[in-house]
Design a protein around this nucleic acid. Structure first.
Lengths: 196, 196
DNA sequence: CGTCTATTTGAATGTACTCAAAAGCGGTGG
DNA sequence: CCACCGCTTTTGAGTACATTCAAATAGACG
């Protein structure tokens, strides 16, 4: 019996995972609840897991030497999140992940995933496609950060991810866009009353 | 008989590809020569191929609406390059790729690669790992662009990729770092004569 | 050797920043 | 249930860093 239909559909959107394979995967996953403001992983730890979000919203971020946080990823349910760098090298990571809302995730460990890659070749394909798409999206984000200004970046995000923008506090949207909260506040004001 | 040892070692650095499998791959690859300043792919085209560089140096870049180029990737021999977005969606791309030096690449087509994924499961793993690492590196670059200033980004690149910096004209390094050539010129001057 | 492009330098400018403070909002405990 | 506290958002004023524009110099290539 399939429990996590959201994940089953997520895997099967671009791959074919059988029910039997999926139940094998499910038997390994660990469900985790996280209250708003609580941290899933903390800078300096070795990330033993990556996470599939079944409910809620998370942000991953790093802190620079001035003590300022920069948002790497904002993720709602049906997304995967983790400190990939720490996860694949199994060395201490620079990212922390915090819940923006009360959140529920499914945890998948490094060792288990390596085993599953062997047992279920379609899963290797799944993550190849996942990383491929993530790479393209990140290239797009980097290109945006170089080629268009803050206001256009905000409008682009707003048009692509309206739900995300409505659920995430301005302070984290600003950080994701690479600007200060003050600047984003002014941008929003301009967009409401487009004087001139 | 293995012809492209550089590629064979590239594939086998993190995967096991047998000689037989590799010769199957080689039978499909097309060798292409490219003179300095010539373009490998041009914005608006559908990227039918990705490329492994066996000799030389390439840059991929996009042009924004003001007509300014932004470097997405700088790649020397032993690297893979392409317009991944266009390649995986088989729709017109926004990137162009140009030779910075006389260059030789091995071309791998979308259709051939899909076939090879089926024939050679280890290749699926190879590209899963390749995209995984590329994603981590791009996350690092994005984090840098938000958390440290232009001078620090240049020094970081210089320490990580001294060969690349020495072989690529300042104008393209600047674009890669997200700054103007004038700014990078001034940064270099400061680093030579660090008055205060 | 001449032409074209890349690099350097100078001066003026602007966009987003910092610092500061007020207003708004949400959650918690008395 | 309401008052308070902390955090988020807004607004203002002054500033800094990299930009733009312009021009001179240096370097590469045919």
């Amino acid at each position: 019996m399939i429990e996590n239909l959201l994940l089953f559909n997520n895997l099967n959107a671009r791959t074919r995972i059988t029910e039997a394979e999926f139940m094998r995967i499910e038997s390994i996953l660990v469900k985790k609840q996280l209250r708003k403001k609580r941290e899933l992983i903390i800078e300096g730890e070795i990330s033993k897991n990556i996470y599939f979000i079944t409910k809620g919203c998370l942000r991953s971020y790093s802190i620079n030497k001035e003590g300022i946080a920069h948002v790497m990823q904002l993720a709602l349910e049906d997304y995967w999140i983790g400190d990939l760098s720490s996860f694949i090298t199994q060395t201490p990571g620079k990212l922390s992940i915090e819940a923006i809302e009360d959140t529920e995730v499914l945890q998948l460990s490094f060792a288990d995933l390596e085993q599953l890659y062997i047992e279920i070749p379609a899963l290797e394909r799944f993550f190849r496609l996942l990383f491929q798409r993530a790479l393209v999206q990140l290239q797009q984000r980097l290109d945006n950060s170089m080629s268009i200004n803050a206001e256009e970046r905000y409008q682009d995000l707003l048009s692509r991810q309206p739900l995300l923008v409505s659920r995430v506090p301005l302070i984290h949207i600003a950080s994701y866009l690479g600007i200060t909260p003050e600047s984003l506040s002014r941008i929003r004001k301009r967009l409401v009353s487009p004087k001139k």
